[in-house]
Amino acid sequence: MHKETLLARTLVKLADTLVDDFDVVELLTLLTDRCVDVLGVAAAGIMLAAAEGDLRVMASSSEAMRVLELFEIQAQEGPCLDCYGTGAPVANPDLAGGDHGWPRFGAEAIAAGFRSVSALPMVLRGRVIGALNLFRVEPGEMANVDLESAQAFADVATIAILQHRAAAEAQALNDQLNQALNTRIVIEQAKGMVAERQGLDMEQAFGVLRNHARSHNLRLTDVATGVIGGTLAVADLDRARWPQAGRRSNRAPKRSS
């Protein structure tokens, strides 16, 4: 099969997994296998960050690769860790050269039969979620076209993983969004009530609500809900430190308006 066709098919397969209830490990294993098939690398592996930020080996095209990646995590040095840490591609064309700053990892990789390495970040909107490691048995730089293909694989896999996470948590995320929007609405309504009762503009009214919340150690949402529900009278709110709003002011107003 043509290399281009294989590339396109891999990307389509990756994209298809977005609709199905897919298994993340299965998807990533497919990705590492295709890297070997399509990009002419000897081995490929993927590490993803766990919730605590630690990298975990998620998929490897071979057992030797898996062992090497586990070693990388154990030794806390190597291209995948550097790539994840910086969010930028990392490449070393000759692991025997020794100037890569990974003395233990370099020796281990060479012992496993590898000579050169590239690591590509899995990143979306500035959020690095992991890295793709590509190993070859011969020294030298990877062709740019292959690196671009590898990055395309990594990008689609990244969005697949993140969208999958969003889908798995859809109910919770939508509840959060609704809750956040409701909170905003209650605050806007309370601002309106305070503005009307105290003859303030909306910004000043917000200042009154926030000031009351701070000085009584209450959440702004609870103050706003109290105002709307009538359990907290507008007249009982602490005045904000606006000259127009009135009374004692022991601190200069933040704005000149």
């Binding site: 609405i185 806007e188 309504q189 309370a190 601002k191 309106g192 009530m193 305070v194 503005a195 009307e196 009762r197 909306m202 709307i228 507008v234």
Partner: peptide, 10 residues
């Protein structure tokens, strides 16, 4: 919603 708060007070 700001207007609703004002009208409610009015």
């Amino acid at each position: 919603h700001q207007a609703a708060g004002m009208v409610a007070a009015q």
